[in-house]
Computed example of a mutant assay.
Amino acid sequence: MDTVYHLDLNSKKIQGAKIALLPGDPFRSQIIAETISGIYRTGNEKLAWKREFCTYLAEIGGRPLLVTSTGIGGPSASIAIDELAQLGIETFLRVGTTGAIQQFINIGDVIITSGSVRLDGASTHYAPIEYPAVAHHEVINALIEGAKKTNAPYHVGVTASSDTFYPGEERNDSFTKYVLKRFQGSTNEWQRLHVLNYEMESSTVLTLTASMGLRGGCITGVVNRGGTGKITKEALKAGEENVIRVAIAAAECLI
Rank of each mutant, 00 (worst) to 15 (best):
G213K: 06
G213A: 03
G213W: 09
G213D: 00
L214W: 01
L214M: 06
L214R: 14
R215W: 07
R215F: 09
R215A: 11
R215L: 05
G216Y: 00
G216P: 12
G216S: 04
G216N: 05
G217W: 03
G217T: 10
G217Y: 03
G217K: 05
C218L: 05
C218F: 10
C218N: 11
C218Y: 07
I219S: 02
I219G: 03
I219A: 07
T220E: 04
T220V: 12
T220L: 07
T220M: 06
T220A: 13
T220D: 10
G221E: 06
G221I: 08
G221C: 09
G221T: 12
V222Q: 11
V222F: 11
V222K: 13
V222P: 08
V223K: 06
V223D: 07
V223G: 15
V223C: 15
N224E: 08
R225Y: 15
R225D: 08
R225A: 09
R225M: 15
R225G: 05
G226F: 01
G226Q: 14
G226L: 03
G227I: 04
G227M: 06
G227S: 00
G227L: 00
G227P: 04
T228E: 13
T228F: 15
T228I: 13
G229V: 07
G229Y: 04
G229C: 02
G229M: 04
G229L: 04
G229P: 15
G229K: 04
G229S: 01
K230Y: 12
K230C: 09
K230V: 10
K230W: 09
K230H: 10
I231Q: 06
I231V: 14
I231S: 08
I231K: 12
I231P: 11
I231W: 05
T232Q: 02
T232E: 06
K233C: 00
K233Y: 01
K233D: 01
K233Q: 05
K233T: 02
K233V: 04
E234S: 07
E234I: 02
A235T: 03
A235Y: 02
A235K: 01
A235W: 02
A235V: 03
A235D: 13
A235S: 13
L236V: 00
L236G: 07
L236F: 12
L236T: 10
L236E: 08
K237E: 14
K237I: 13
A238Q: 12
A238F: 00
A238N: 07
A238T: 13
A238Y: 05
G239T: 07
G239K: 08
G239Q: 01
G239W: 05
E240W: 03
E240F: 05
E240S: 14
E240I: 08
E240M: 12
E241W: 06
E241Q: 11
N242T: 11
N242F: 06
N242L: 09
N242M: 14
V243K: 02
V243L: 00
V243D: 00
V243E: 00
V243Q: 03
V243W: 03
V243N: 01
V243R: 02
I244R: 12
I244F: 11
R245S: 15
R245N: 12
R245W: 11
